[in-house]
Each structure stands twice: as C-alpha cells, then as structure tokens.
Simulated scan of single mutants.
Amino acid sequence: METSGYHLPVLLHEVVENLQIRPDGTYIDATFGGGGHSRAILEQLGPQGRLIVFDQDEDAYRNRIPDERVVFVRENFRHLQRFAKLHKALDADGLLADLGVSSHQFDTGARGFSTRFDGNLDMRMDTRNATTAADILQTYSEQHLHQLFQDYGEVTNSRTLAKTIVQLRKAHPLRTIAEFKSLIQPIVKGNPAKYLAQVFQALRIEVNDELGALKDLLTQSSTVLKPGGKLAIITFHSLEDRLVKNYMKGGSFETADENPYSFETPPKLFKLITKKPVTASEKELRANPRSRSAKLRVAEKI
C-alpha cells in the first residue's frame, strides 16, 4: 500500500487491528489528513462498507479519495453527530481520530505551524475561521497569555513570556514567525527548538480550540457508535491523552478525585480494549520519528 509523502499515518497497523473492521460496516475517520488511515480502512471494507471522513483543511479536501463508499465532510470533527446523522451513519462500527497535525501542514511554511520556516503566524486548520495566532498574540491579556502557555505548552517561564509579549507588541508587529522568534529570543529557556515547539503548540491548540473540539468529539462518540463499536484515538501530548483516558474509563473528563464534590458516577459508556496506550514499534520510530509521542487508546461502546 503506497502512502504519499503528504503524511505518514502513525500506528497504522495497530489502528486497523484494533478497529476489528467488518467488511459491511460503517466507519468514521474524524481526521482524514493525508488519508493514510482511511485508505487502510477501505482496503478492509467490502462493496457494502461505508466510510465517512472529516477534515476541515482545504489541502486534505483536495487530496480526497475518489471512491463511492467514501463521504467527505469538510468540517471540524466537533460537528460529528450532526453530519453522522445527515449521512445516516449514527450506528457506526468504528470511529478513529488521529490528533496529530499532518506533516503536510508542518511542512508548508505559509501555514505558520512550524518554527522551521518563516511565514505568517496563522496556524488555522480551517482557514475559514477568523482568529489567527498573530491575533492572539496581539489581543490577549497578559494573564490570558500566561495561562495559555502554561496550560497548553507547559512552557517553563510562561509568565515572563506573556509579560514580554505584552510589552513588545505595542511597538513591534507580531505578524510573522521570524519577527516573533527574534523578539522572544532573549527569554528562550533551555533547548530553543523544544522551547519554541512548546510555545507554538500552545498557540495552535488555542487557535483551533483543539481541546474543546476533542471534548465535543468524545461526548458525541457514544451517540454515534453502536454497542460494540470501537473508538480509537491517537494523541500526541499529555493534555489530550488525559482527556481521552478519563473519558474512556469513566465517561467524564476529570477523574473522581479531581472533583471531590461529584458524588454521582457517570454511567460507564465504554470498556477498555487497550489497558495501556499503544505506542510505535522500533521499526516505525526509525521510519517516522514523529510517531515517538503518539499514543493510541481504544475502547468499545457498551
């Protein structure tokens, strides 16, 4: 099976194996990206099988698969339930979401996702949305920026970073990656590449409301899947992984001890198929270093 250089799908074999694909089943790939996972699912589907794919990204849409079994929904997966209903897929056999930014997005400098290129500070997965990373840097309060870098990027000196941005933005445009990098250069701590990656991650999560969208996807997954249907989610950082783990385990985003006032246990929606997250094999790590932080969790709807 060939996959283009557009985006190497991570944990491909593990995803297909854990979804236990039925040839006549209905499956949803909530993050089409380069289409690698979708193609692998289609290979297992017979003529009666169906695949609904979501991706809000224009480049992903241009890369769509010409196959009558596939329906492409050019929307954020947070609208999962609405479009699953529209396309009569409310009793799906499996749902997959790979929460990594596609390599293609990272490798297209103009999109502003990567610190390796210069380009506008954009980072919108869906270019139809109004707010860019530059808007956030220009308009958020110091407190809001501090919270953002601390929570979403785990940036060591997030308070100093927020303060510096607010001081400097009065006089300097923060439109491009190069401008931003040179302005914050004096306060970068530790390994610059890692530091900038954490800062960019925080901005990207905020621009695209990634954690809000993930919560929406998870809460709707139990409505969209039929009993016995599989939910497979690949995460790339601890914030996402915690939400997925807690939701699969207890139907809630917090663990019981995080919320001492909650006396009712939500009903169990899923049973875990993977007790521990599945991670990339040595072979895959060699072929695709980006798979290093990928974690796959799979659960079955009760």
Rank of each mutant, 00 (worst) to 15 (best):
L161Q: 14
D135H: 11
Q48N: 13
D98Q: 12
P266V: 03
F83I: 10
L217F: 08
G190L: 15
D59G: 04
K85N: 15
R62K: 14
T127S: 14
L148P: 00
G100D: 03
R69Y: 00
A178V: 10
N157Q: 11
D98W: 00
R62M: 07
P277L: 01
L243R: 00
F200A: 09
I21E: 09
T176Y: 05
L196D: 01
G94L: 07
A84G: 08
L99H: 11
Q143M: 11
A162S: 14
L272F: 06
T160A: 12
S262T: 10
L269S: 08
T219V: 15
A287Y: 00
R204D: 05
L12K: 04
S252L: 08
T127F: 03
I136E: 01
N157Y: 03
R116Y: 00
A92P: 04
G35Y: 02
D241C: 05
L211V: 06
R175A: 12
E2F: 09
V10F: 00
I273T: 10
T131C: 05
G25I: 02
E254Q: 13
R175F: 01
Q81D: 08
L285E: 00
M1W: 08
A197W: 02
R22G: 08
T265I: 11
T223L: 04
D122Y: 10
V101Y: 10
T26A: 12
N129L: 05
G34H: 06
E206K: 03
A202W: 06
T131W: 01
K276L: 04
P186M: 12
R124D: 09
L42W: 01
L285A: 01
L183I: 15
L45A: 06
Y27D: 06
R128M: 12
V278S: 13
L8N: 11
G190S: 13
L239R: 09
D67P: 14
I21K: 11
A294P: 15
A280H: 06
E17S: 10
S158E: 05
S238I: 14
L42R: 03
G94Q: 02
K283W: 08
L174W: 02
G35M: 07
G250D: 13
R175N: 09
D67M: 12
H146V: 02
K295I: 06
Q48V: 15
